[in-house]
């Protein structure tokens, strides 16, 4: 996981550096063959089972459900990826293209933990008549995990720097 911008590239262990060309072998096997068509037929048959199950269930609102599924996709592709790219771009600009990988990891992990924790922290599901549910201090817990994340990132970064210096010294004296 990384919040690194699409424009930032990494080649030197714990730091990112020079640009590289985009990979070119993604599409080699996309043109269809027996495996592709058989899997597609089976897969869409299973999808239709799901759609039929949904349409037959009286407690489901298929149109509303479809909006949530499609909305999640759009939210990710239009909003989330844009935010990730902007943050990565700003970082790359500020750090002149040398964004430590551990920094990207710590940012991304902070984001993931926050996303997962958000409904707990906000207490959307708390009910006065079910007191034994959701009674932890989730804000405190989230902050603790974010602190651990950044501490780990700092440790990894420092170890990487120390190793780099040692390697440089041994090369200079060797």
């Amino acid at each position: 996981m990384t919040a690194e911008t699409p424009d930032v590239v990494g080649t030197t262990g714990d730091e990112t550096a020079a640009p590289a060309p985009p990979p070119a072998d993604h599409d080699r096997h996309d043109d269809g063959g027996p495996v592709f068509w058989v899997a597609t037929a089976i897969g869409w048959a299973i999808i239709l089972i799901g759609v039929r199950t949904g349409l037959r269930d009286r407690e489901l609102e298929p149109w509303s459900l479809a909006k949530w599924v499609g909305g999640g996709l759009l939210l990710h592709d239009l909003a989330w990826l844009t935010v990730v790219a902007i943050i990565g771009g700003v970082l790359a600009y500020l750090l002149r293209g040398r964004v430590p990988v551990v920094l990207g990891w710590a940012l991304a992990t902070t984001a993931v933990l926050t996303i997962i924790a958000w409904p707990f922290v906000r207490g959307y599901g708390r009910r006065a008549d079910v007191p034994s549910a959701l009674q932890r201090n989730y804000a405190e817990g989230l902050l603790a995990y974010i602190a651990v994340t950044w501490l780990l990132a700092l440790i990894v970064y420092v170890i990487g720097r120390l190793r780099g210096r040692r390697d440089d010294r041994s090369q200079a004296t060797g």
Partner: peptide, 11 residues
């Protein structure tokens, strides 16, 4: 996912 596996298996 089954359809996607079929599309990406060889790759």
């Amino acid at each position: 996912l089954v359809a996607h596996i079929g599309a990406k298996l060889a790759l």
